[in-house]
Protein backbone atom coordinates (compact mmCIF):
# COMPACT_ATOMS: atom_id res chain seq x y z
CA UNK A 1 0.00 0.00 0.00
CA UNK A 2 2.78 2.40 0.94
CA UNK A 3 4.57 1.84 -2.36
CA UNK A 4 1.34 2.43 -4.24
CA UNK A 5 0.62 5.59 -2.28
CA UNK A 6 4.10 6.95 -2.89
CA UNK A 7 3.88 6.20 -6.59
CA UNK A 8 0.47 7.82 -6.82
CA UNK A 9 1.65 10.91 -4.95
CA UNK A 10 4.66 11.16 -7.25
CA UNK A 11 2.37 11.15 -10.27
CA UNK A 12 0.16 13.81 -8.68
CA UNK A 13 3.15 16.04 -8.01
CA UNK A 14 4.50 15.72 -11.54
CA UNK A 15 1.06 16.40 -12.99
CA UNK A 16 0.82 19.46 -10.78
CA UNK A 17 4.18 20.64 -12.06
CA UNK A 18 3.13 20.15 -15.66
CA UNK A 19 -0.10 22.04 -15.10
CA UNK A 20 1.82 24.88 -13.51
CA UNK A 21 4.09 25.06 -16.57
CA UNK A 22 1.02 25.12 -18.80
CA UNK A 23 -0.59 27.91 -16.83
CA UNK A 24 2.67 29.86 -16.81
CA UNK A 25 2.85 29.49 -20.58
CA UNK A 26 -0.77 30.66 -20.82
CA UNK A 27 0.13 33.95 -19.16
CA UNK A 28 3.10 34.45 -21.43
CA UNK A 29 1.09 33.68 -24.53
CA UNK A 30 -1.38 36.38 -23.59
CA UNK A 31 0.88 39.21 -24.68
CA UNK A 32 3.73 41.30 -23.40
CA UNK A 33 3.40 41.38 -19.64
CA UNK A 34 5.57 44.46 -19.18
CA UNK A 35 3.33 46.45 -21.53
CA UNK A 36 0.28 45.24 -19.67
CA UNK A 37 1.67 46.23 -16.28
CA UNK A 38 2.84 49.59 -17.56
CA UNK A 39 -0.63 50.45 -18.80
CA UNK A 40 -1.80 51.72 -22.16
CA UNK A 41 -0.16 55.13 -21.87
CA UNK A 42 3.37 54.03 -21.10
CA UNK A 43 6.22 54.75 -23.45
CA UNK A 44 9.14 52.52 -24.42
CA UNK A 45 11.48 53.54 -21.62
CA UNK A 46 8.91 52.98 -18.88
CA UNK A 47 8.11 49.57 -20.30
CA UNK A 48 11.79 48.66 -20.38
CA UNK A 49 12.16 49.81 -16.78
CA UNK A 50 9.20 47.69 -15.71
CA UNK A 51 10.56 44.73 -17.64
CA UNK A 52 13.83 44.98 -15.73
CA UNK A 53 12.11 45.66 -12.42
CA UNK A 54 9.88 42.57 -12.69
CA UNK A 55 12.69 40.42 -14.05
CA UNK A 56 10.85 39.89 -17.31
CA UNK A 57 14.09 40.16 -19.27
CA UNK A 58 15.49 36.97 -17.76
CA UNK A 59 15.38 33.58 -19.51
CA UNK A 60 11.94 31.99 -19.39
CA UNK A 61 13.09 29.06 -17.30
CA UNK A 62 14.42 31.40 -14.61
CA UNK A 63 11.20 33.37 -14.74
CA UNK A 64 9.23 30.16 -14.37
CA UNK A 65 11.25 29.09 -11.36
CA UNK A 66 10.74 32.47 -9.71
CA UNK A 67 7.07 32.45 -10.55
CA UNK A 68 6.55 28.88 -9.33
CA UNK A 69 8.34 29.69 -6.08
CA UNK A 70 6.05 32.63 -5.49
CA UNK A 71 2.99 30.63 -6.57
CA UNK A 72 3.93 28.00 -4.00
CA UNK A 73 3.63 30.76 -1.44
CA UNK A 74 0.27 31.71 -2.94
CA UNK A 75 1.64 34.88 -4.51
CA UNK A 76 0.39 35.29 -8.07
CA UNK A 77 1.35 38.90 -8.53
CA UNK A 78 -1.04 41.75 -9.15
CA UNK A 79 -4.11 41.95 -11.32
CA UNK A 80 -3.73 43.99 -14.51
CA UNK A 81 -7.20 45.43 -14.01
CA UNK A 82 -7.94 45.81 -10.33
CA UNK A 83 -5.45 47.51 -8.03
CA UNK A 84 -5.24 44.29 -6.02
CA UNK A 85 -3.23 41.15 -5.52
CA UNK A 86 -4.49 38.18 -7.49
CA UNK A 87 -4.47 36.05 -4.36
CA UNK A 88 -6.84 38.45 -2.58
CA UNK A 89 -9.21 38.51 -5.54
CA UNK A 90 -9.23 34.73 -5.82
CA UNK A 91 -9.60 34.23 -2.08
CA UNK A 92 -12.56 36.61 -1.98
CA UNK A 93 -14.41 34.69 -4.69
CA UNK A 94 -13.43 31.17 -3.72
CA UNK A 95 -16.07 30.58 -1.00
CA UNK A 96 -18.90 31.31 -3.42
CA UNK A 97 -17.73 28.72 -5.93
CA UNK A 98 -16.94 26.14 -3.27
CA UNK A 99 -20.34 26.64 -1.67
CA UNK A 100 -22.01 26.26 -5.04
CA UNK A 101 -19.97 23.15 -5.80
CA UNK A 102 -20.71 21.51 -2.45
CA UNK A 103 -24.45 22.20 -2.64
CA UNK A 104 -24.57 21.06 -6.26
CA UNK A 105 -22.75 17.87 -5.36
CA UNK A 106 -25.13 17.31 -2.47
CA UNK A 107 -28.10 17.82 -4.77
CA UNK A 108 -26.63 15.42 -7.32
CA UNK A 109 -25.87 12.72 -4.74
CA UNK A 110 -29.15 13.07 -2.87
CA UNK A 111 -31.10 12.58 -6.07
CA UNK A 112 -28.83 10.22 -7.95
CA UNK A 113 -28.08 7.62 -5.27
CA UNK A 114 -31.70 6.88 -4.25
CA UNK A 115 -32.72 6.93 -7.89
CA UNK A 116 -29.92 4.54 -8.83
CA UNK A 117 -30.82 2.21 -5.96
CA UNK A 118 -34.49 2.24 -6.90
CA UNK A 119 -33.68 1.62 -10.53
CA UNK A 120 -31.53 -1.36 -9.62
CA UNK A 121 -34.15 -2.84 -7.30
CA UNK A 122 -36.85 -2.43 -9.89
CA UNK A 123 -34.72 -3.34 -12.82
CA UNK A 124 -36.43 -3.26 -16.23
CA UNK A 125 -39.63 -1.74 -14.89
CA UNK A 126 -41.09 1.66 -15.75
CA UNK A 127 -39.21 3.10 -12.77
CA UNK A 128 -35.88 1.95 -14.16
CA UNK A 129 -36.73 3.41 -17.53
CA UNK A 130 -37.87 6.71 -16.03
CA UNK A 131 -34.61 6.99 -14.10
CA UNK A 132 -32.72 6.28 -17.31
CA UNK A 133 -34.73 8.93 -19.15
CA UNK A 134 -33.95 11.50 -16.45
CA UNK A 135 -30.27 10.74 -16.74
CA UNK A 136 -30.22 10.79 -20.54
CA UNK A 137 -31.98 14.14 -20.50
CA UNK A 138 -29.50 15.46 -17.97
CA UNK A 139 -26.63 14.63 -20.26
CA UNK A 140 -28.28 16.20 -23.28
CA UNK A 141 -29.40 19.47 -21.77
CA UNK A 142 -27.16 22.51 -22.22
CA UNK A 143 -26.60 23.57 -18.62
CA UNK A 144 -26.87 27.31 -19.32
CA UNK A 145 -30.17 26.78 -21.10
CA UNK A 146 -31.45 24.70 -18.21
CA UNK A 147 -30.38 27.48 -15.84
CA UNK A 148 -32.16 30.13 -17.87
CA UNK A 149 -35.28 27.98 -17.96
CA UNK A 150 -35.15 27.58 -14.17
CA UNK A 151 -34.90 31.35 -13.77
CA UNK A 152 -37.83 31.82 -16.09
CA UNK A 153 -40.02 29.38 -14.16
CA UNK A 154 -39.00 29.73 -10.53
CA UNK A 155 -37.82 33.32 -10.31
CA UNK A 156 -39.77 35.32 -12.83
CA UNK A 157 -43.04 33.43 -13.06
CA UNK A 158 -43.44 31.85 -9.64
CA UNK A 159 -41.23 34.34 -7.75
CA UNK A 160 -40.08 31.66 -5.34
CA UNK A 161 -36.37 32.15 -5.63
CA UNK A 162 -34.03 35.05 -6.38
CA UNK A 163 -32.51 35.60 -9.80
CA UNK A 164 -28.88 36.47 -9.21
CA UNK A 165 -26.21 37.09 -6.64
CA UNK A 166 -25.14 35.10 -3.61
CA UNK A 167 -26.55 36.95 -0.63
CA UNK A 168 -28.56 34.14 1.01
CA UNK A 169 -28.90 30.36 0.78
CA UNK A 170 -31.90 30.86 -1.46
CA UNK A 171 -29.61 32.35 -4.08
CA UNK A 172 -27.78 29.05 -4.34
CA UNK A 173 -30.78 26.81 -4.91
CA UNK A 174 -31.30 27.28 -8.65
CA UNK A 175 -27.61 27.39 -9.64
CA UNK A 176 -26.92 24.29 -7.54
CA UNK A 177 -29.78 22.42 -9.20
CA UNK A 178 -28.59 23.49 -12.65
CA UNK A 179 -25.02 22.47 -11.92
CA UNK A 180 -25.88 19.33 -9.98
CA UNK A 181 -28.25 18.01 -12.62
CA UNK A 182 -25.35 17.85 -15.01
CA UNK A 183 -23.33 15.65 -12.65
CA UNK A 184 -26.25 13.48 -11.66
CA UNK A 185 -26.52 10.99 -14.57
CA UNK A 186 -23.03 9.58 -14.11
CA UNK A 187 -23.56 9.05 -10.39
CA UNK A 188 -26.94 7.48 -10.98
CA UNK A 189 -25.69 5.03 -13.56
CA UNK A 190 -22.75 4.05 -11.41
CA UNK A 191 -24.98 3.48 -8.37
CA UNK A 192 -27.40 1.42 -10.43
CA UNK A 193 -24.67 -0.74 -11.93
CA UNK A 194 -22.92 -1.11 -8.58
CA UNK A 195 -26.17 -2.15 -6.96
CA UNK A 196 -26.93 -4.65 -9.70
CA UNK A 197 -23.52 -6.19 -9.28
CA UNK A 198 -23.80 -6.38 -5.51
CA UNK A 199 -27.35 -7.70 -5.63
CA UNK A 200 -26.25 -10.57 -7.81
CA UNK A 201 -23.25 -11.34 -5.62
CA UNK A 202 -23.04 -14.42 -3.45
CA UNK A 203 -23.41 -12.90 -0.03
CA UNK A 204 -26.56 -10.97 -0.93
CA UNK A 205 -28.01 -14.12 -2.42
CA UNK A 206 -27.12 -15.89 0.79
CA UNK A 207 -28.71 -13.16 2.83
CA UNK A 208 -31.84 -13.42 0.72
CA UNK A 209 -31.86 -17.12 1.13
CA UNK A 210 -31.59 -16.64 4.89
CA UNK A 211 -34.83 -14.72 4.62
CA UNK A 212 -33.55 -11.25 5.52
CA UNK A 213 -35.96 -8.45 4.61
CA UNK A 214 -35.05 -6.59 1.42
CA UNK A 215 -34.59 -3.32 3.29
CA UNK A 216 -32.09 -4.88 5.65
CA UNK A 217 -30.20 -6.39 2.74
CA UNK A 218 -30.13 -3.00 1.11
CA UNK A 219 -28.80 -1.16 4.11
CA UNK A 220 -26.54 -3.79 5.57
CA UNK A 221 -24.87 -5.10 2.45
CA UNK A 222 -25.69 -3.75 -0.91
CA UNK A 223 -25.64 0.00 -0.42
CA UNK A 224 -22.48 -0.03 1.61
CA UNK A 225 -20.57 -1.76 -1.13
CA UNK A 226 -22.14 -0.04 -4.06
CA UNK A 227 -21.44 3.37 -2.62
CA UNK A 228 -17.67 3.01 -2.43
CA UNK A 229 -16.97 3.71 -6.11
CA UNK A 230 -19.57 6.44 -6.00
CA UNK A 231 -17.53 8.36 -3.44
CA UNK A 232 -14.54 8.23 -5.76
CA UNK A 233 -16.65 9.38 -8.67
CA UNK A 234 -18.14 12.15 -6.53
CA UNK A 235 -14.66 13.51 -5.85
CA UNK A 236 -13.91 13.62 -9.56
CA UNK A 237 -17.31 15.13 -10.34
CA UNK A 238 -16.73 17.81 -7.72
CA UNK A 239 -13.56 18.82 -9.54
CA UNK A 240 -15.40 18.93 -12.85
CA UNK A 241 -18.20 20.96 -11.32
CA UNK A 242 -15.81 23.62 -10.04
CA UNK A 243 -14.47 23.92 -13.57
CA UNK A 244 -17.93 23.87 -15.11
CA UNK A 245 -19.43 26.40 -12.72
CA UNK A 246 -18.12 29.17 -14.97
CA UNK A 247 -21.20 28.82 -17.19
CA UNK A 248 -23.65 28.58 -14.31
CA UNK A 249 -22.08 31.53 -12.51
CA UNK A 250 -22.45 33.57 -15.68
CA UNK A 251 -26.13 32.66 -15.97
CA UNK A 252 -26.91 33.46 -12.33
CA UNK A 253 -24.49 36.40 -11.94
CA UNK A 254 -22.86 34.58 -9.04
CA UNK A 255 -19.68 36.38 -8.10
CA UNK A 256 -17.51 33.31 -7.78
CA UNK A 257 -14.28 32.12 -9.33
CA UNK A 258 -15.94 31.24 -12.62
CA UNK A 259 -17.41 34.68 -13.08
CA UNK A 260 -14.10 36.25 -12.11
CA UNK A 261 -12.30 34.03 -14.63
CA UNK A 262 -14.75 34.83 -17.39
CA UNK A 263 -14.59 38.57 -16.80
CA UNK A 264 -10.83 38.47 -16.45
CA UNK A 265 -10.55 36.70 -19.79
CA UNK A 266 -12.74 39.37 -21.35
CA UNK A 267 -10.58 42.09 -19.72
CA UNK A 268 -7.27 40.47 -20.71
CA UNK A 269 -6.44 40.18 -17.04
CA UNK A 270 -4.38 37.05 -17.45
CA UNK A 271 -2.61 36.84 -14.09
CA UNK A 272 -6.05 36.21 -12.59
CA UNK A 273 -7.02 33.68 -15.26
CA UNK A 274 -3.79 31.82 -14.81
CA UNK A 275 -4.16 31.69 -11.04
CA UNK A 276 -7.70 30.34 -11.33
CA UNK A 277 -6.65 27.67 -13.83
CA UNK A 278 -3.92 26.63 -11.45
CA UNK A 279 -6.11 26.62 -8.35
CA UNK A 280 -8.87 24.58 -10.02
CA UNK A 281 -6.34 22.11 -11.41
CA UNK A 282 -4.72 21.70 -7.99
CA UNK A 283 -8.07 21.07 -6.33
CA UNK A 284 -8.82 18.45 -8.97
CA UNK A 285 -5.44 16.77 -8.54
CA UNK A 286 -5.83 16.68 -4.78
CA UNK A 287 -9.37 15.27 -5.03
CA UNK A 288 -8.45 12.52 -7.48
CA UNK A 289 -5.40 11.64 -5.42
CA UNK A 290 -7.55 11.36 -2.31
CA UNK A 291 -10.14 9.30 -4.18
CA UNK A 292 -7.51 6.93 -5.57
CA UNK A 293 -5.89 6.43 -2.21
CA UNK A 294 -9.26 5.86 -0.59
CA UNK A 295 -10.21 3.33 -3.25
CA UNK A 296 -6.93 1.53 -2.93
CA UNK A 297 -7.38 1.39 0.82
CA UNK A 298 -10.78 -0.20 0.38
CA UNK A 299 -9.99 -2.50 -2.49
CA UNK A 300 -6.53 -4.08 -2.53
CA UNK A 301 -7.01 -5.22 -6.14
CA UNK A 302 -6.62 -1.62 -7.30
CA UNK A 303 -3.10 -1.30 -5.91
CA UNK A 304 -1.32 -2.04 -9.14
Amino acid sequence: MLAFALRRILVAVSVALTVSVASFVLLHLSGDIATAIAGPEAIGEQIAAIRAQHGLDRPLIVQYAAWAWRALHLDFGRSFYFPEHVTDLVAARMPVTLTLGVIALAVALLVAIPLGVLAAFHRDTWLDRAALAVSVLGQAMPSFWFGLTLILIFSVNLRWLPVSGNATWKHFVLPAVALGYYAMPAVMRLTRNGMLEVLSSDYVRTARAKGLAPRKILVRHALRNAVIPVIALAAVQFGFMLGGSIVIEAVFSLQGLGQLAWESIARNDFPVVQAIVLVLAMIYIALTLAADLLNALLDPRLRT
Binding site: V11, S14, V15, A16, T18, V19, A22, L26, L29, S30, L242, G243, G244, I246, V247, G258, A261, W262, I265, A266, N268, F270, V273, I276, V277, L280, A281, Y284, I285, T288
Partner: peptide, 23 residues
Protein backbone atom coordinates in the same frame (compact mmCIF):
# COMPACT_ATOMS: atom_id res chain seq x y z
CA UNK B 1 0.32 8.16 -21.73
CA UNK B 2 -1.45 7.75 -18.38
CA UNK B 3 0.46 10.73 -17.09
CA UNK B 4 -0.47 12.82 -20.12
CA UNK B 5 -4.13 11.85 -19.73
CA UNK B 6 -4.09 12.71 -16.02
CA UNK B 7 -2.55 16.07 -16.78
CA UNK B 8 -5.14 16.80 -19.42
CA UNK B 9 -7.95 15.81 -17.04
CA UNK B 10 -6.62 18.19 -14.41
CA UNK B 11 -7.03 21.19 -16.72
CA UNK B 12 -10.48 22.77 -16.37
CA UNK B 13 -11.84 22.36 -19.92
CA UNK B 14 -14.27 25.25 -20.17
CA UNK B 15 -11.84 27.71 -18.65
CA UNK B 16 -8.88 26.66 -20.79
CA UNK B 17 -11.05 26.63 -23.93
CA UNK B 18 -12.31 30.13 -23.11
CA UNK B 19 -8.81 31.43 -22.45
CA UNK B 20 -7.45 29.93 -25.66
CA UNK B 21 -10.38 31.23 -27.70
CA UNK B 22 -9.89 34.71 -26.29
CA UNK B 23 -6.16 34.67 -27.05
Amino acid sequence: VSYVVTTRLAMPVVLVALAMASL
